[in-house]
C-alpha cells in the first residue's frame, strides 16, 4: 500500500495537526479536564493511524522504525514504575510523612515547587503532585504501543501482498 490519492493526503495534512494538538491537550490537562494518559494517547495514536493509512506503510517506516517505538514505550513504562518507586524513596528525604508504593510525594510540601499546589476548582495546572508526570509517562507508552501495533501489522501484510 503506497499511499492513497492526493485528496486524502491533503485532508490528512489539514486534519492531522488538529488531532495531534487535541490529544496532547487531553494528556497535559489530564488532572483538570476529562481524559488522561490513556485517552489522549489513544487520540494521538488514531491520528498517527490516519497518517499511516493515507501515506502508506513504506513511507512511514522510512520515518520511524518499530524498534524506536519499542524504546519509547519502554521509556514510558520505566518512567511510570520509577515514579511509583520514588514514592517509597521520598520518605528518607522529607521524613515528615509516611512513604509507600504509588505515594503522591509532590503534594503538601514546599521544597520542590513542581505541581505542589492544591486545586480548588480554579483549573490551575500547577496542581495534583505526581499525577501529571504519570499522565505523561502513560501517554507516551500508549502512543508508542498502539502505533507500533498498527505499523507492524500494516508493514508485514504489505510484504505478503507484494509476493
Amino acid at each position: 500500500m503506497s499511499g492513497m490519492s492526493r485528496i486524502v493526503k491533503t485532508i490528512t495534512n489539514v486534519a492531522f495537526p488538529i488531532v495531534l494538538i487535541y490529544g496532547l491537550y487531553v494528556i497535559a490537562h489530564g488532572h483538570l479536564t476529562p481524559g488522561g494518559g490513556f485517552q489522549g494517547g489513544a487520540v494521538v495514536a488514531s491520528g498517527l493511524a490516519m497518517l499511516l493509512v493515507a501515506y502508506g506503510s513504506i513511507w512511514v517506516i522510512g520515518k520511524v522504525k518499530e524498534k524506536q517505538l519499542s524504546i519509547l514505550e519502554s521509556i514510558g513504562a520505566i518512567g511510570f514504575i520509577g515514579l511509583a518507586f520514588l514514592g517509597i524513596l521520598m520518605v528518607f528525604i522529607y521524613s515528615s510523612f509516611q512513604g509507600n508504593f504509588f505515594n503522591n510525594f509532590l503534594i503538601n510540601q514546599n521544597e520542590i515547587p513542581l505541581f505542589n499546589e492544591i486545586g480548588a476548582g480554579l483549573a490551575n495546572i500547577n496542581t495534583a503532585g505526581v499525577i501529571p508526570l504519570m499522565n505523561f509517562a502513560v501517554g507516551l507508552k500508549v502512543i508508542a504501543g498502539l502505533f507500533a501495533i498498527v505499523l507492524v501489522m500494516a508493514y508485514a501484510t504489505r510484504i505478503k501482498e507484494g509476493k
Partner: peptide, 22 residues
C-alpha cells in the same frame, strides 16, 4: 481535592488511589 490536589476525580482515582490497576 484536599488529598491529591487534582480537580478531576476520575484521574485522581486512576493514578493515585488505585495505582495498582493502572
Amino acid at each position: 481535592q484536599n488529598e491529591t490536589g487534582a480537580d478531576n476525580g476520575v484521574t485522581a482515582v486512576v493514578f493515585d488511589y488505585r495505582g495498582f490497576d493502572t
